[in-house]
Amino acid sequence: MIAVIDYDTGNLRSVANALGRLGAEFMVTDDPAKIRGAERVLLPGVGEASTAMEKLRQRGLVEVIRSLTQPVLGICIGVQLMCRRSEEGNTPCMGIFDAEVKRLGARPVCPCGCMGPVAKRLKVPEMGWNTIAHLRTPLFAGLDEGAYVYYVHSYAPELSRQTIATTLYGMPFSAALGRDNFYGTQFHPEKSGRIGERILKNFLEL
């Protein structure tokens, strides 16, 4: 059984639908006992970091999540909350990953060409499909370097020694982080077509 953590940040439906397409059994819950007892835990969500962090705290879930030993996957705001701190609202986060979450587009023009051939400035939020590289860990088993995944975000975790995939958008950032049983993706595997399905499947098989 997979526990999808419900902390009132929306977008649980798409994750639930994606698990449904994979034929996985799951429950959407904020019950600490059920989360601890699940074989896998997903922390999805969209929204603003300080609000989302507050919602986890109100439900007494911060310590619960930190102490989990089964595979855990944070998605989008989920992975950001697993980092040390977020620039968004200057928010202290759970500190599972040793990385800070930074605002995209701090620099107006990037010389690396990642903004496209003719773009004059970086559009924020980054919305759309971008590539992932430097893939590590079984989360990306069977995927090629340069696979496309779907992003909608204005903030992203910086690179760290726990980076297990990178993406370039104005600056390189952690597309995914991993440490022990904890994983997180800044992109949305539940919306990333076949590639995303493979990543979720890999997570279910970790």
Binding site: S14, N17, G20, R21, V152, K191, E197
Partner: peptide
Amino acid sequence: IARQINIP
């Protein structure tokens, strides 16, 4: 659609 489509 949401149940069956795997892109946004």
